[in-house]
Amino acid sequence: MSYPDVTALVTGGASGIGAAVATRLRAEGVRVVTADLAPGADEKLDVTDPEAVDALVAALGPVGILVHSAGIVGPSKRVAELGFEEWRTTFRVNVDGTFLMCRAVVPGMVRAGWGRIVTMASIAAKDGNPAQSAYSASKAAVVGFTKSLGKELATTGVLVNAVAPAAVETPMNAHTDPAVLARSQSLTPMGRFGKPEEIAELVAWLCSARVSFSTGAVYDASGGRASY
């Protein structure tokens, strides 16, 4: 694959999909900085903190690639049982975090005339998982935001795309309701969960210079589950 001499910032990079993406990009010779609240990342970052996000991007200098993988599943509860703060927390991390990270890196990418942004959506954004309304709705918001930003930047050299995985074997899903995971697996024609490395392959391609005529798109990685 082809990558210019740029810095890649990968949020949620301490584990799961983010860590797999960082490993994959580094294998291509890309300078990668991982950011996460969990131990093990290069930088500690709360993606819901505007000042912290802006400060990190400023300290790194020009960021040519952003892979925003930080996110939470949130509570697996029926709507009538879901607390407002639980709803808001899911949106703060998944939606506000996406907005803040993109807002911070876009000006530098536009000035450089080149950039790649990959956001992490979910098959839940399309299907709407029962008992996961906060997660499903927040990931649908990520899809809408990505499509809007992709169109906004379409003539700048900055491409913005989303990846929508089905359930993946990651620490983020360690505390997900087993019934929710079982339902997801039953709906997947391949009959298994995805692996972080499989998602990372798609993300790495979207970050490369080989992608030149795709922006504002959503790429499924669902083992055949996606139907539209």
Rank of each mutant, 00 (worst) to 15 (best):
S122I: 02
A70Y: 05
C207Y: 02
R116D: 03
T34K: 13
V106S: 08
T34L: 08
A124W: 12
L149C: 08
S69M: 15
R92S: 14
Y135I: 13
W205Q: 00
A141I: 10
L9V: 06
G108L: 09
L66G: 02
P4A: 11
H175W: 15
K195T: 08
A124L: 15
V106F: 06
V73K: 10
L159M: 14
L56M: 13
A19R: 10
G144C: 12
V21R: 01
F91P: 02
I72W: 06
A137V: 07
I123T: 06
P4K: 15
D46I: 03
E85R: 13
A41M: 09
P130Q: 00
S214A: 11
V203C: 00
A124T: 14
G97F: 06
S122Y: 01
A226W: 12
P107K: 12
N129K: 05
M109T: 07
A8Q: 06
A217P: 07
A179R: 00
E169T: 15
V93T: 11
L149T: 01
T48G: 09
G115S: 07
A41P: 11
A19D: 02
F145W: 15
V57F: 02
V218D: 07
T23Q: 13
M1P: 06
G16K: 07
A80R: 12
R31T: 13
G61P: 02
D42C: 15
T156L: 05
F145A: 12
L153C: 08
M120E: 00
Y228F: 10
I123D: 14
A131F: 06
T34H: 12
E201V: 03
V110F: 04
G157P: 11
A104R: 06
S15A: 15
V110S: 05
V67P: 00
A140E: 08
G113M: 13
P171S: 03
A8P: 03
R183F: 00
S186N: 05
T11Q: 06
L202C: 03
